[in-house]
Structure formats: structure tokens, C-alpha cells
């Protein structure tokens, strides 16, 4: 696999440096702790919303730092949880009297390291709480997880909490919102190809030219089953039914729909998938209030996509519509 890389060991550091250089007004970068944070943070009148997971899922979550989204991100190496001292420094430097909210995707490494850092920070009197995101309906447990995995639904938790925090919501209020979003969001993904972490140099799993992995995890963890490649509409139907039936959604629901590319699928194909998802929503009586088609939570250069449905109410519709600005932008 050909990649744009210098020394693979510096891959994450060089990416972070690039993000910081591209956003000199908005972001600050602390190389010792892989920490990217908003230049105007911490703000004493606002809860700091932070996250740290493995790298390799960009734009999640490092490129989701900005007004109305995350205040800071502290990623680990590719597909590795950030170590405890990164988490601790992130909390310490973003500590605000109103508190710090850590949004954690449900993976054992992320949970353990953040939990430990939170305990250390609390012992020093910092007001910090955490929330666990677990929106993936594909499997109950995996090689990286007890319980469901946190995947693209993470974006909606960040967006809603980021918007509410910007308006001055308290830490407990943000926990309530995070809980609401997580309880109403469901995701499932499918892989057409594997992916190659730069430092590893070879694909993390084998998959035939005519095969797909249904329910794949964003670190290439196995999903529900290996299947033969089939038409796009049939793939969407399977993802849609799994997600729809899990909550379950019901006729009359107002929803946000996300078709998220896993890194190696062109946006043209993502819109082919969205077309079918929109048809299925209509057929099931769902009203699409907002749609998101593009890359939000990837798995390096994996070809594939995930489908997310979020049930909305007036509060969430309002929070999703609030202004936000992040490091990835096309205008």
C-alpha cells in the first residue's frame, strides 16, 4: 500500500502539526501530549468539551475542534487509545470552573485511560465528568470492546454538546443532552476493503475482491458476517434495516441521516448510498430534517461506509442547526 508518509513513527505528530499550521488563529498545538485545543480556551464561563481516541479516524475527532464543537482533542497513535498522561494534560489544561466533559467512545483502552486521568484530575479538585458513546448496532462485544462500539454517532453527541456548551449549559445539562443523543442514535457500517496503519505497513485484515464485511468496526474489527459483494441498494437496505429496527424508529419520526465514508470511498458513491437511504426513510414514514453525506469518522483508507440515523426532537434539531466551525472545511 502506497502512502504519503515520512517516518511512519511520526505520522500522527506530522498530521497534528499540519492541522495546527492550517488553523493558526483558531487552534493551539502541544506536541508533547498530541493536544490540539481552541486558542481561546479554557473559557471560565463555559464547560470544556474534550475527546481523545485513537488516530486514523479523521476528521474524527481531531478535526472536530472548533467553535460549537470540541474545545480540545488528544489523540493517541493510529488505532491506539491516548495514554493516561495525554488525557490528564488535556483535562488539566482545559479545566474551567464550569467543568470539563470528556466524551469517550466505547473502547476498553479509551475508557481505562480516560477514567484514570479523570480520577487523578478529580483528586486535584477539577470538576470533570465523562460520557460513553456506543452507537454501533453491529455487534455486542468485540476484540476492542465490552458492549457496543462508539462510531460515527459520536459526531452528533459532539455537535449537540458543543452547541449547548457554547450557549452556557452546565456540566449536568450537557450530560443529559449527551445521554439523549446517544440513546436516540444508531449506526452500522460495511467494509469493501481493509486498511493499512502506516507504522504497521500491512492490511489489518484480509478480504477478497468480491467480499464485504457487514457490520465492520472502525479499527477493522470483525462485524456480523462476511458476505459477497452485492448492489449498493441491497447493502443500504441491510444497514438501514439493522439500524431502523434496533431503536426501533417508527413512522412519523423526524430524523438526521448520515452516510459516512470510511476513508477510501468517493463521495459520488456515498450519494448513491444516500439516494437509497432517503428512499427507505420515505417508505418508512421518516422525515429527514438534516442530512450528512461525507467523511466524519473514517478508518484510514478503508473503502466502505456507515449509515447513521438519529431521532430528533425540537431541542436536538435546534442544537444541530447551531453554527459551528472546524478545521476541515470546503469553503
Amino acid at each position: 500500500m502506497k502512502k504519503f508518509v515520512n517516518d511512519p513513527a511520526n505520522f500522527v505528530a506530522e498530521m497534528l502539526e499540519g492541522v495546527a499550521l492550517a488553523n493558526p488563529e483558531m487552534l493551539r498545538y502541544v506536541p508533547e501530549y498530541n493536544l490540539i485545543y481552541r486558542a481561546d480556551r479554557p473559557n471560565p464561563d463555559k464547560v470544556s468539551v474534550v475527546q481523545g481516541s485513537g488516530s486514523g479516524h479523521e476528521p474524527a475527532h481531531i478535526m472536530a475542534v472548533g467553535p460549537g464543537m470540541l474545545d480540545a482533542a488528544a489523540p493517541g497513535n493510529v488505532f491506539s487509545a491516548p495514554p493516561v498522561d495525554y488525557c490528564y494534560e488535556c483535562i488539566k489544561r482545559l479545566a474551567s470552573p464550569k467543568g470539563v466533559l470528556v466524551l469517550i467512545n466505547n473502547y476498553q483502552g479509551d475508557r481505562m485511560n480516560w477514567d484514570m486521568a479523570i480520577e487523578m484530575a478529580q483528586a486535584e479538585g477539577i470538576n470533570v465528568k465523562s460520557f460513553i458513546i456506543d452507537d454501533d448496532v453491529a455487534v455486542q462485544d468485540s476484540t476492542h470492546t465490552v458492549g457496543r462500539r462508539g462510531v460515527a454517532g459520536n459526531f452528533f453527541v459532539i455537535k449537540a454538546c458543543g452547541a449547548a456548551a457554547e450557549r452556557g449549559a452546565s456540566l449536568d445539562e450537557l450530560l443529559r443532552i449527551a445521554q439523549k443523543v446517544n440513546s436516540q442514535v444508531r449506526t452500522m457500517g460495511v467494509a469493501l476493503t481493509s486498511c493499512t496503519p502506516p507504522a504497521k505497513g500491512k492490511p489489518i485484515f484480509e478480504i477478497g475482491d468480491d467480499e464485504i464485511e457487514v457490520g465492520v468496526g472502525i479499527h477493522g474489527e470483525p462485524g456480523r458476517r462476511r458476505d459477497k459483494l452485492k448492489p449498493a441498494d441491497a447493502i443500504v437496505d441491510e444497514l438501514f434495516d439493522a439500524v431502523f429496527n434496533d431503536l426501533p424508529f417508527k413512522s412519523g419520526d423526524r430524523v438526521a441521516v448520515m452516510i459516512n465514508g470510511l476513508g477510501g470511498t468517493p463521495i459520488s458513491e456515498l450519494y448513491v448510498l444516500y439516494r437509497r437511504a432517503a428512499q427507505r426513510c420515505k417508505e418508512k414514514g421518516l422525515t429527514i430534517v438534516r442530512n450528512y453525506v461525507g467523511e466524519y469518522c473514517t478508518s484510514l483508507e478503508m473503502a466502505g461506509a456507515s449509515l447513521t440515523l438519529l431521532r430528533l426532537d425540537s431541542e436536538l434539531e435546534d442544537l444541530l442547526a447551531a453554527p459551528a466551525e472546524v478545521a476541515v472545511r470546503i469553503f
Binding site: 495514554p83 493516561v84 498522561d85 476498553q108 483502552g109 481505562m112 485511560n113 477514567d115 484514570m116 480520577e119
Partner: peptide
């Protein structure tokens, strides 16, 4: 916690 890899780091570190 920082230098022991995998889950053993945070467990021993805790």
C-alpha cells in the same frame, strides 16, 4: 500507566 502497553498499563497504574 504511560509505558506499559495495552490494558495492563492503566490497571497496574491505578
Amino acid at each position: 500507566s504511560r509505558n506499559v502497553g495495552g490494558c495492563s498499563g492503566p490497571i497496574w497504574g491505578t
